[in-house]
Design a protein around this nucleic acid. Structure first.
Lengths: 152, 152
DNA sequence: GTTTCATGTAACTTTATATGTTACGTGATG
DNA sequence: CATCACGTAACATATAAAGTTACATGAAAC
């Protein structure tokens, strides 16, 4: 299965934005992520609707952070994407009449639910602020570089 | 993303086989699972290679259980499928030069690894025998039915 | 007010992967 | 040797993410 990298992508964008004042155009962000501006707008749409970022049209427009980074967790960001399914595996049939299938589903669903719950909990423990601070540590003594200096 | 249901499928097959003596042709199993015989052979190939089941050609041939059901866990079955990825989400880039990407990956990988580990652990706790016994409970007082009586 | 810029969004293409299907080879049974 | 059943390659289909094109909307610059 093709793995969904939207969460990874949107976090990348948000972290870039946290490094310097905005606004950033979709075009600029897309170049930094080596993707298309439309893709940026797509993954940012949910965040905008929830008020985590703001977007402005016209000259000098673009995307701006509009939230307290210490209040927004990775789980919130995940939810803003529409909470896509976390697991790559699922039941063959969701509401089977076959008792064999029911037995299989019962066993798998328990394991699946546990794993999903743990993953969501972990994502809920990490705020954007924590991520941003981790990034600054990685940047180390290096001069805080702008998006222009982004390394492919 | 399309969710992988091979684990669910192969467990379904194994449970059916545990309900009555074999051998079962791919054709028979496929009818019970509403799929194609080739699909059955495909998902059974790994199990055969690991010795969990045996396959015989020619007249009277087919698939037979060849393991101690109390010794094989759902995790073993999962491994027999080739350990396909468990999570539907992943990193945008696996070994990024970009520090922002590295920071994002570090945070996500931790959460992902925890969830995967828990899922594997849970699968490792359930044996085929436990599944089979759960199934018999579900069948209740009902006469143990054969595959022929399988309900669509 | 017209031009330019930037987002918003629909529609289409591409890509990846699971699943389904056809065809044919191999070996075992009768 | 004819039939049965697996083994496997090759091809077809389905679904979802990602990429692309096109155009509408609204804001700023001139």
């Amino acid at each position: 299965m093709k793995r969904d990298s939207r969460l990874s992508g949107v976090l990348h964008v948000l972290l870039h934005m946290a490094q310097q004042p905005g606004p950033f155009t979709s075009e600029t962000l897309a170049r930094a992520m080596e993707t298309n501006p439309v893709v940026i707008r797509r993954i940012m749409a949910g965040l905008r609707d929830l008020g985590y970022v703001r977007s402005e049209k016209g000259h000098g427009g673009g995307w701006t952070l509009a939230c307290d980074l210490s209040k927004v967790t990775l789980r919130d960001v995940y939810a803003a994407l529409g909470s896509p399914s976390l697991l790559a595996m699922g039941n063959r049939t969701e509401a089977p009449g076959c008792l064999v299938e029911q037995a299989v589903n019962a066993a798998l669903n328990q394991a699946f639910a546990d794993a999903e719950a743990l993953l969501l909990a972990r994502l809920g423990e990490v705020t954007l602020k924590m991520l941003s601070e981790d990034l600054r540590k990685r940047l180390g003594s290096r001069k805080i570089h702008g998006i222009g200096a982004h390394r492919a």
